[in-house]
Structures are given as structure tokens and as C-alpha cells.
Computed example of a mutant assay.
Amino acid sequence: MKPSCQHQPNGGRVTMSSTLNILSTNAKESGIKQTAGQTMQSLRLLAHLGPRIQCITNPVAMDFSADILLAVGAQTSMTMGMDEIAEFVTSADCLSVNTGTLDSTRRAAIDTAVQTAIDFNKPWVLDPVSVHASSTRRSYAQGLLEFRPSVIRGNYAEIHALANDESANAPQKLARQTGAVVVQSGETDLITDGRRTLLMTNGSVLQTRVAAMGCASSALIGGFLAVNPDPFEAAVHALLTIGVAAEESVKLGTGPGSFKMHLLDCIYNLNEDLLVQRGRIVQCEEVAGS
């Protein structure tokens, strides 16, 4: 009988349950070597091509999201002006949408940006910030699902609220309903397209002490989507990048301020050997009928 695992809301630890069967733990297997190699290939493409990511995000997240993208070689634009947003999305390589600070101006910009992305076949990322805290925001974000985001990234509460489902398999169900890759972030990250599911345990608790870390992760996924047409792989590569870099940056700093500074340096200086050495990925399968 295979062991099983579940992504839990209380900190995201991997615990025993009957929800997901573990297929393999590839931290020391060939799987992580392949993933690390593909991640480095994407990082080299980002540095070479310098794709532009159009980000609609909350003011708190703008600087950090831009810095994270610049660290991997991507460019970013943050405009929300209704007279130019469509042009910016048309010429961008990917769109990243964050529902933080969801005022009428931001909502109008999101509506136009998402429609433009669909019209011009651009991949886009949805970060449903705080949809668990506001029924109005949740309803709005659920309406955006009709526009088929490539990736949806949120924490446990956000993903389950967006899915209107408190079951352990809500991320998989949401992925199947929308056709998106769903990333549920936490102490353990869960990445699923409804068929494949990975758990990733890289990262640092200091990520919870820096503002906009989740928002910047969504923007980074957008960067990887710009150079990799497979949303599942793009999400895995982005989270492996930021997770391993976070672990390395803890060694260099003394607290949240220095952690944030060193995180950018560690992302910039990542190499394949480090990704192989530090990457921790668990492949799982959903238990039928759960």
C-alpha cells in the first residue's frame, strides 16, 4: 500500500491522510535533476529574451514584483490607465492579475486587460487575493474564471474560497473546472492541473514576514509562462526558483529586511547544482472518490 499525503491548512505541512497517494519523492532521484535542468533552461531564456510581463497588482506589491522579475531578466509594466492598458497587454508576453486593493479603477483595468489577453492569445495568471475575506471580491474573481486563466495562485483560504469547496481536493477540482493550473501556496506548495499533482517543500518561514511575497510569486510565474508554454512546468519552475533562493538567502541575512535583499541576489545567482541539491518535490495522485 502506498503512503499518502495531504496539504493541510494549518501551516501547510505534509501529513498522512487518504486524499493523495505518494508516487515518488524525487529530492534524490532523477526527477529533481530533470526539473532543475528545465528550470535553468527557462532561467536562461528569461535572461536572454527579457520578456515583458504586464502586472496589475496592489501598490504594496509593485516594487517587489518588479524586482523579482528583473532579477530573472524579465521586464515589467504596471500601468492601469484605461487609455493604454489594452496596448500594453497586446505587446506584453504575459499578464499577471492580482485582486488586491480592488477598487473601481483597478477592476476596470483588470476587465480590459483580461479581455485583451484572451483576444490576443496571451497567457495570464490570476492571484485571487483575499477572496475569502469578501463575498464581493470572491464573486468578482469567480467571474474572471470564465476567461480561462493559465494559472491560478493563492493560499489555502483563497483557493478554497474561490472553488467554493472546503474539501482537501478543492485545488484539483478547481483545476479541472477551469482548465487552469492551480497553485496552492503555503509551507508546502501544491501544484496541480487536475491530473498531475506535485507537492514542493522548499522555502523559508521568513517569506511570511515580507510583504507581497505571494504577489511576487504570481508575477514570477507569469515570467516563466512567457518562456514556457506549459503552465504546469512554468509554475513548478517558478516555485522551485523562489523556494530554493529563499532557503539560501536565510543563510546570508539576519531578519526580514536582509532576507528580502538577499533573496533577489540568490535568485540572480541560482545554478543547476543548487537546485538539484536543495529541490524537494513529491509527486502525488488523487485518490479516486475522495
Rank of each mutant, 00 (worst) to 15 (best):
T254V: 06
I118M: 04
G223E: 02
R138T: 01
T15G: 04
N121R: 09
A86G: 04
G100D: 05
V287W: 15
D265E: 14
I221L: 02
S65G: 07
L270Q: 00
V236M: 07
S258C: 00
L126P: 09
V227H: 04
A216Q: 01
A36S: 11
G73E: 01
L190K: 15
K251R: 13
I281V: 15
L263S: 13
G253R: 10
F147P: 05
L239M: 13
P171A: 08
A47I: 02
L206W: 15
A238C: 01
M1Q: 05
D273T: 02
R195T: 07
S18Q: 08
S77R: 02
A92S: 13
F224D: 03
T116W: 09
T99R: 00
A108R: 13
L198F: 15
Q115T: 12
T112A: 11
Q207G: 05
S249L: 11
A141N: 09
V236W: 02
G253E: 10
S18V: 04
Q177S: 13
H160W: 05
T79H: 04
A170E: 12
I110E: 08
S204Q: 10
L239D: 07
K251W: 10
N58D: 07
G253L: 09
N271H: 14
A86C: 06
G279K: 10
L45Q: 10
A141H: 14
A66P: 07
V210W: 04
C5Q: 00
A245Q: 05
I191C: 09
P256Y: 11
T241N: 00
K122L: 12
N269P: 00
A212L: 03
F88W: 07
E146T: 11
L46K: 05
M40Q: 00
G12P: 07
E146Y: 14
N155M: 02
T136L: 13
A212F: 06
I68Y: 14
K28R: 09
T112N: 06
L70M: 09
G243T: 01
A109G: 15
T201A: 03
S24D: 10
D189P: 03
G257C: 01
A74M: 02
A109I: 08
N58R: 07
F88Q: 04
V131A: 06
S139H: 04
M62Q: 15
A74Q: 12
N164D: 13
G186W: 15
I267H: 00
C266K: 13
W124G: 13
A161Q: 00
F120I: 02
S249K: 07
N98K: 10
T178Y: 12
P3E: 08
M40G: 10
G143N: 14
M16T: 04
N228K: 04
E187N: 03
Q177A: 12
D189E: 03
L23P: 03
V60T: 06
I85F: 13
D265V: 12
E87I: 10
S258D: 08
G255A: 08
S290Y: 15
V183N: 11
S167K: 15
S204C: 05
M16E: 05
P171T: 07
Q75E: 08
Y140V: 07
G223H: 02
H48M: 00
S217A: 11
A163Y: 05
L102W: 14
Y140N: 04
